[in-house]
């Protein structure tokens, strides 16, 4: 058994998930491929969205994959970091907006 939960080399084995459930696995990869095709959004824009979401999801595989994808597309590190801040802003906003719930509760219980 490996000593860590995450092994970078496992990313290369991602495709193998189809081995234990071929139909669903294939459907997933087909869908995944389609999502990232050039559409109303450019593939470049999608790559930056994926990078930001990779961070908010805190998936190390996705972070590796979409950092590399960004470099391959000529995306600069400044653009990458700005995309991350969008993710971080939503994350922190989502935390803080729940403060309203807290305030409501305090007001109700102790107002």
């Amino acid at each position: 058994m490996s000593k860590t939960y995450y092994d970078p080399a496992d990313l290369r084995k991602f495709g193998k998930i189809t081995e234990w459930s071929e139909e669903l696995g294939n459907k997933f990869f087909e869908y995944y491929g389609k999502v990232f095709e050039e559409g109303a959004l450019t593939a470049r824009e999608k790559s930056l969205i994926a990078l930001a979401v990779s961070h908010t999801e805190q998936c190390p595989y996705c972070i590796d994959a979409y950092t590399k994808d960004g470099l391959q597309r000529g995306i600069t590190k400044e653009e990458m970091m700005e995309a991350l801040h969008v993710g971080a802003a939503i994350k922190s906003g989502a935390t803080l907006v729940h403060g309203v719930q807290m305030m409501n509760k305090v007001n109700k219980l102790d107002g």
Binding site: T42, A43, K68, L71, Q72, R73, G74
Partner: peptide
């Protein structure tokens, strides 16, 4: 000629050209 600045492969030639 564009070749990547690090250990990664070049992206799509047509979109790189556009950029």
């Amino acid at each position: 000629v564009y070749n990547p600045s690090g250990a990664f492969l070049p992206g799509d030639q047509t979109s790189m050209e556009k950029d």
